[in-house]
Amino acid sequence: MTGLLLRDKNAVIYGGGGAIGGAIARVFAREGARVFIAGRTQAKLDAVARDITAAGGTVRAAKVDVLDEQAVEKHADEIAATVGGIDIALNAVSVMHDQGTLLADLSLEEFMRPVDGFLRTLFITSKAVARHMGHERPGVILTLSEPGSKLAVGGILGHSVSAAGKEAFSRVLAAELAPSNIRVICIRPHAVVDAPEAGSYTKELFEQTAAAAGQSVQELLEDGAMAQMTLLKRLPTLSEIAETAAFLASDRAGAMTGAIANLSAGALVD
């Protein structure tokens, strides 16, 4: 048991029923963490919890609206009261948004949806967990962004601004929380090749782009332009993201904070 990366750590994952959040929750539990998954869809949370329990891990699932600040604070307070604190927090919440519409046809609502949605959940969850971690017991807050934070291509205004905002949020939060012994690291994967098959909202997100290219979503992700723009000529997998997240959350990455972990398979961005 001593070799487990996250032995005796308390980890809360928002969006824990989703494709990325669920994959990370399973690996965290395998590595010895007590995992608390929260999200909006009970059935998805229960499915992840069953997998973790069947593998011998420790998990608790709670239906929590991450846009409800009071509900998130109450949930974090309950976790801390039960197990003595929070060591790791990950925000893997998804917000459906537009990709492909240019400024002339993009509404203000569509533009603001990912900007407000993603950043609002980041603020709410980070504030709720930060007061329960750090000092003599190191804390880690993990966030997720996308290569859109750096891309200069048309049709991704809201997506790009929200991704850049998430990275800026993580960088500045790292500076604020460092004196409290809390690390903040942003993980930047590209589109995840096996996420749609795992129930990710990206299947719906990429349907229009795939149809325009005469491909299925899976063909788009396996052989399309997004894969070809990476150095490895492929997109990352859920397993790669989850395994890296476990390392970043562990004490072995204790010197890392304020950093972007590029898991995009080497996306060619400026």
Rank of each mutant, 00 (worst) to 15 (best):
V153T: 13
V66L: 03
A23C: 03
C186H: 07
H190L: 10
I182P: 05
I141T: 01
E136V: 04
A62M: 10
A267K: 02
A38R: 05
Q42T: 01
F28Y: 15
G22A: 06
A49K: 02
V83C: 12
A128D: 12
A163T: 02
T244D: 03
E110V: 00
I260V: 15
K9C: 02
V184R: 10
G39F: 09
R252K: 14
R113T: 15
A261C: 14
G18A: 06
R171K: 13
K166D: 07
G15F: 06
V217L: 11
G154H: 11
A265Y: 06
P138I: 03
G21P: 07
F247A: 07
V129P: 04
V66Q: 00
L5V: 01
S170V: 03
M256Q: 13
R234W: 11
V95I: 15
F28C: 04
A38S: 15
A61K: 02
F123L: 13
E69P: 06
V153R: 13
D65G: 07
A195S: 14
L67G: 14
A191G: 06
D251Y: 06
E207A: 15
H190I: 02
I185G: 07
L5H: 08
A259V: 15
S126L: 03
K127L: 10
A19V: 01
A174Y: 04
R26K: 14
L122Y: 15
G56N: 07
V35F: 01
L231Q: 07
A71I: 08
C186R: 06
A54K: 12
S145H: 08
G84E: 02
M256S: 13
A174C: 08
I141G: 03
P196K: 05
P196W: 04
T58M: 09
